[in-house]
């Protein structure tokens, strides 16, 4: 009985902690940060704002026609693919949307932010939310 109480207390504390962590960012629902390769290349991680894109395109344009998987960081997008016209490069080519020379418009996240979907249910419940203060100061 005691152990059950102990475990449930632990879970409660962990949950409150993650909730407090989640409060640190005020990012737009569905904003995705991608940091597969950016940090290693000494670039800021990429922020993909879902809200901005869904005003202009239906979900199926990217997720069916262009083959984006429904998983943050799961598409292994790199600049070579984009230059070849795959993924972001299908539109960000200077014809449909602005071209790739505007590096910092995408690579605009705080350095050290890990790959994640911001404000998502999973983020609030379990996953680590944001680079801790220590990391963001570095």
């Amino acid at each position: 009985m005691k152990s059950v109480i102990r475990v449930s207390c632990g879970i409660l504390i962990a949950l409150t902690f993650t909730l407090f962590e989640a409060e640190k960012t005020n990012a737009e629902y569905g904003d995705i940060v991608m940091n597969n390769y950016s940090a290693k290349a000494e670039m800021r991680p990429v922020v993909f704002p879902h809200w901005f894109h869904r005003i202009r395109f239906q979900c199926k344009v990217c997720h069916a026609d262009l083959g984006f998987k429904f998983q943050a960081g799961g598409n292994e997008i790199n600049m070579l693919k984009i230059i070849d016209g795959e993924y972001c490069g299908a539109c960000h080519n200077g014809e449909i949307a602005w071209a790739i020379e505007n590096c910092n418009l995408c690579h605009s996240a705080k350095p050290g932010t890990p790959t994640q979907v911001h404000d998502s249910t999973i983020q609030k419940l379990v996953a680590p939310t944001f680079a801790t203060d220590k990391q963001s100061k570095q």
Partner: peptide, 24 residues
């Protein structure tokens, strides 16, 4: 964007992005 906690306020391009409030 510059106040949302994930965009870098030290990045000048952050200020060029459309703000959700304006769009909505």
């Amino acid at each position: 964007p510059q106040e949302d906690g994930i965009h870098d306020p030290d990045n000048e391009s952050t200020y060029m992005l459309q703000t959700p409030r304006e769009a909505f």
